[in-house]
Write a protein that binds this DNA or RNA. Structure first.
Length: 263
DNA sequence: ATGGTAGAGCATCTA
């Protein structure tokens, strides 16, 4: 199974690039974040023409997440299944694709440490942990992916001193990321590149940061052990961040070998 | 120089 996650920063503005990328990269599952559209604007026909079924959880101007799959989509859950009230913001979508439970997430940015939105971010990760308990078990095939808006380590940031005191790198946020790993998930990209620093998935549009390689690794694919033990490779497609009209995020892919079938 | 760009939608808000 080939699975990818991509914060597209508006699916409407990025549809042609998404279509071209699907054809070139040929993922079985593509999780999207920041679609910035309402459910009735989701381009199901255009994506269906490429062989992908899609489910979308949106609200209009902001946020919005989707799962595209050519290996089936069932058991769709919009938002949190933790028993709490509905989230005001469309940031979470869960579905079964083939044999895997796939959770796609667009975590809150946090804006500034101590800001109301920062507390919302921390609480949002608490709910995500409870959501995982409700929809999946780490002994099965589970993928939690998306723009988590956390750089797990200092080496996942271009210059940690330059953003000292900012969001994405605080101990509180990193503890929430670690909690996902403790639940039974493996950071697939880091497992493939244990010794490489400054490999990023996002670069600010401003000040030519992409070309200066000033970015962060804030998009992640976390997989349960049954998938991690069959993980073949992972990569960030930086070419998709180039050219005219890119998202500020690059797609992140993983490839998992098929489960061995006894002869 | 406390900046810069992009998207939604038409004044700002969010990132």
């Amino acid at each position: 199974m080939r699975l990818a996650t991509w914060n597209v920063n508006s699916l409407k503005a990025r549809l042609e690039r998404v279509e071209a990328w699907l054809s070139a990269a040929s993922p079985d599952v593509l999780c999207l974040q920041e679609t910035k559209m309402a459910d009735d604007a989701f381009p199901a026909l255009a994506l269906g023409a490429l062989g992908y079924e899609g489910v979308h959880h949106g609200q209009g101007r902001w946020n919005g997440v989707a799962i595209l799959s050519r290996i089936g989509i069932t058991d769709v859950v919009h938002g949190f299944a933790d028993g709490g009230p509905p989230d005001d913001e469309a940031r979470l979508l869960t579905a079964r694709c083939g044999t895997a439970v796939v959770v796609t997430a667009y975590a809150p940015n946090g804006r500034a440490v101590g800001h109301e939105q920062f507390h919302y971010k921390l609480a949002w990760f608490e709910r995500l942990a409870a959501h995982l308990d409700a929809v999946a078990d780490p002994s099965e095939e589970v993928v939690v992916c998306g723009d988590l808006n956390i750089a797990p380590e200092d080496r996942d940031v271009w210059d940690v001193e330059a953003i000292h005191g900012a969001t994405h790198i605080t101990d509180e946020e990193r503890a929430r990321f670690q909690r996902l790993l403790d639940w039974g998930l493996v950071d697939a990209f880091r497992r493939c590149y244990p010794d490489d620093d400054r490999l990023f998935t996002w670069w600010d549009y401003r000040a030519g940061n992409f070309h200066k390689h000033k970015g962060m690794r804030i998009d992640h694919v976390l997989v349960s052990e049954p998938l991690a033990e069959r993980l073949s490779w992972s990569l960030v497609d930086r070419n998709a961040r180039k050219g005219t009209g890119p998202s500020d995020h690059a797609p992140l892919l993983i490839e998992v070998e098929p489960e061995a079938v006894p002869a």
